[in-house]
Design a protein around this nucleic acid. Structure first.
Lengths: 304, 304
DNA sequence: GTGAAAGCGCTAACAA
DNA sequence: TTGTTAGCGCTTTCAC
């Protein structure tokens, strides 16, 4: 079963390769007889022809490939590994619906290499949680003009769009639930430190009331060190689920940043913070992909 | 910043494009003067050249792309969406290490389309949880000779390798924990019904003692309908975590199929069933990718 | 040790 | 309405 090319079906249908191409691409300005169109389409069916997208993109200068690049370190704990699983799923689904294909790639958080973008000529890229100090070199090695949406990162740059949680808003909601109490906080770690810092600053509590999640043992220790009966506000439902092992979950308010609020123990309160982060990131990408589109002024998009 | 091609660097270094190609690919049978090699490499640096893999694969007839194709239905619950998140992460990481790039794609479980394999000329494919009745047409539309590893599926076919859990073994371990009790069971759904059936058969209990997870409400109802104090054996740690909401988790034994056993409430017992499913699938793929390699006889690989 | 040139599969002017 | 042909960026025989 040798691979069948456009040439084969041209021969089979007694037309030129150009004609076949016209028909397959529904070229607007080309008029084709119904008769030849049928003959060609029949040949396509008969020979089971599938166009080679690599060849096509070579000439079209568009690959139809979108990259999802996620910074990762070696040996991440499971709750960190899964952090973007939901977004990846959703983005992939949206992109697939639109006819794009998705290239998924881990990037070494310590030594990020984004050669894949240029090598594969990606049409657009979602970049997750990138270290601030690496961003300049990354964006510098970036093929000019490739739409880039940076997620969960605060970086010094006025060129690219960044999607982040509206943590101020979310925190206010969470705090409203606990208005009459002093709370402790557990937040997610990010490789992008300014983002972590910004969240810390917004919370603005003392060091001993705030823990940046690292591992379960430390989390347990932190929770146990809190005064008995204190309330806790926790970012990320997986971390929330772990926390519930070490305290009465009715004392917890979980800020869901991962799209699976059902995992949190029933008595805990829930604030959802991701409803449509994927959708917004996707929409933004679609805007960027068409040059003429009207784009938001602010380079930071905050998702409630 | 126009894209720089091999031609540009050939000109820059005063050599032919062939020479550049030789150097970039370290062609074994070609000897190159150290002097020209340096000149060329310098030009590559200077002009910031990155090879176009689409063009390369067109002539090499290898794309370096591996597909991860996952059957999905619309509106899957979160625990189902995330089912393969861990495996996808691990596979992606292993493949990336080996220099492959990963194309991730959802496949409509009802009307699976695998055109992407032929269009993108994928070098190999991991296919997850495919309906038995669709497998024939899929494998039929399969470009001949593309390595395929089918995961979590029982299909009538002697051609492709299938990786599944060794559910018999795992069940025995779980049952050993509960030797003196009659248990109820909750198992994961699969689109591949023979697989679900096989697990049911192995368990071999009455209908009312077994629930195939569908949604949380039904799960709750099922658990509540069991005699007070009965022990439960549950596949999948997310489902286990949900079950723990509705019964004393010390009565539960969770069979971890997802790589995050930490999520299950502490008092529950745990049996791990995935230690290295990704690694084994990956190794198998690597074997298949080299024609000469020695392959397992049995087409079903059971992962303990 | 290096280069000229054919060609991978496809598209898009331009001719016919 | 259809065909001819020149590339897209790269590899690879074969000649020098």
């Amino acid at each position: 079963m040798k691979k069948v090319t456009i040439k084969d079906i041209a021969k089979e249908a007694n037309v030129s390769t150009a004609t076949v191409s016209y028909i397959l691409n529904n070229v607007p300005k080309q008029t084709i007889t119904d008769e030849t169109r049928c003959r060609v389409l029949a040949a396509v069916e008969r020979l089971n022809y599938v166009p080679n997208l690599a060849a096509r993109s070579l000439v079209k200068r568009k690959t139809g490939l979108i990259g999802i690049l996620i910074n990762r370190a070696a040996n991440e704990p499971w709750w960190r590994q899964l952090r973007y699983a939901d977004m990846v799923n959703r983005l992939e689904q949206l992109l697939t619906e639109r006819g794009y294909h998705v290239v998924l790639s881990s990037i070494d958080a310590e030594k990020p290499k984004v050669g894949i973008i240029a090598e594969r000529k990606l049409d657009g890229v979602f970049l997750f949680d990138v270290k601030e100090e690496h961003f300049y070199s990354i964006s510098h090695h970036f093929p000019a003009g490739v739409p880039l949406v940076v997620i969960d990162s605060l970086v010094e740059d006025t060129l690219f769009y960044k999607v982040i949680h509206d943590y101020e808003f979310v925190l206010q909601s969470a705090q409203a639930w606990n208005a009459d109490h002093d709370c402790y906080y557990v937040i997610e770690p990010y490789y992008n430190e300014p983002y972590v810092q910004a969240i810390k600053d917004t919370i603005g509590v003392e060091e001993r009331q705030l823990y940046v999640m690292e591992d379960e043992a430390q989390l347990a220790e932190f929770i146990n060190s809190q005064p008995a009966g204190s309330k806790g506000i926790i970012f990320n439902e997986f971390i929330g689920a772990l926390a519930a092992k070490y305290t009465d979950s009715s004392h917890l308010t979980i800020i869901c940043t991962m799209g699976c609020s059902e995992i949190v123990p029933a008595p805990a309160k829930r604030v959802s913070a991701v409803e449509n982060k994927s959708q917004i990131s996707f929409d933004l990408m679609m805007q960027l992909l068409k040059q003429d589109a009207a784009l938001p002024n602010d380079k930071y998009i905050k998702v409630k």
